[in-house]
Design a protein around this nucleic acid. Structure first.
Length: 284
DNA sequence: ACGAGCTCCTGCTTGC
DNA sequence: TGCAAGCAGGAGCTCG
């Protein structure tokens, strides 16, 4: 499940492979990842073919290449739940879930592989300093222009639960289900705590906790106990051993020893410690 | 305008 | 044993 640290790990893996290279050929092996390209697959391939890749950027979980020598200046990618970029040569196969293949001018092959097909790629226009499809996404905590106090203020103006707010990519980007639960545990906060009853310092603290846990994960190479997430070279990340609550139902809390709970949350799961993160007076 | 719920998808796990 | 249901979930979309 790629969240910010995983996507940043992929970005760093891609950078030395693609920057300065030109795309020689594009092969669309599956329609589904191109579903956001209203102009169609042919236009996608035509725009990409011959383009030169000038940089690899990221905001939250969105990844893009800036391109030169093309009518569409950005190739945007979202990994969804199971998307991967894999690199290799034209001799390499990337299995049955290979979706889009890019051949570069130095012989390298870059492949977008995605089992569950929630991921997508898009040849996009630019709006200011981001692609149009990324314009609505808030800055993430790793962005040098990220405004922690502003994000906390926006969080407190919402009328929802704090976990929903953490997952809202238009409020702060990059946080998914795993790091939301980890951040809430660090901040000793219940996921349903009402955002409009958070103190300024509590809102800042939970956002700061999210930034901390994601920074630790990035240092470890991205969380992965899931074979669906791998680096561009195919190696797995290993941060999962450090998770405090996510996936640890029934195991003891590392702070207080109480058994970690798993609860239904918005068609998925929330993990929390009943001792450290009790239900607050005001919940949503 | 905002918040909440639904939906897309595949493969592994669980239960009858 | 085999089949079906459950589960994983990011984010765009729709509805109230």
């Amino acid at each position: 499940m790629p969240e910010l640290p995983e996507v940043e790990t992929v970005r760093r893996g891609l950078e030395p492979v693609v920057v300065g290279r030109r795309v020689l050929r594009v092969s669309v092996l599956s329609h589904r990842p191109l579903r956001r390209q209203a102009e169609g697959e042919r236009a996608f391939s035509d725009w990409l073919t011959g383009a030169r890749i000038t940089s690899v950027q990221r905001r939250g979980k969105y990844l893009w290449w800036w391109l030169a020598d093309t009518q569409r200046p950005a190739l945007v990618a979202h990994l969804g739940m199971s998307g991967q970029f894999r690199t290799g040569t034209s001799q390499d196969g990337f299995g049955p879930h290979e979706r889009v293949r890019f051949e570069l001018d130095d012989g390298a092959v870059l492949s977008f592989v995605d089992q569950r097909t929630f991921g997508w790629v898009l040849a996009d226009t630019a709006v200011g300093d981001v692609p149009a499809s990324v314009e609505h996404i808030a800055r993430d905590p790793f962005d040098e222009r990220f405004d922690l106090r502003g994000a906390a203020a926006r969080m407190r103006s919402r009328r929802t639960g704090v976990k929903r707010a953490l997952l809202d990519q238009t409020l702060v980007s990059g946080i998914g289900n795993i790091y939301a639960d980890e951040a809430l545990w660090r901040a000793k906060m219940h996921p349903s705590h009402a955002t409009d009853s958070l103190s300024r310092s509590a809102a800042t603290a939970v956002l700061g906790a999210a930034a901390e846990v994601m920074a630790a994960a990035l240092q470890a190479g991205g969380t992965s106990f899931d074979p669906l997430y791998v680096h561009v070279n195919g190696e797995s990340g290993w941060f999962s051993r450090d998770l405090a609550v996510y996936g640890r139902e029934g195991e003891p809390c590392r702070r207080c020893g109480r058994a970690i709970l798993r609860e239904a949350f918005a068609n998925r799961s929330s993990y929390r410690c009943p001792g450290c993160q009790p239900l607050p007076a005001r919940a949503r």
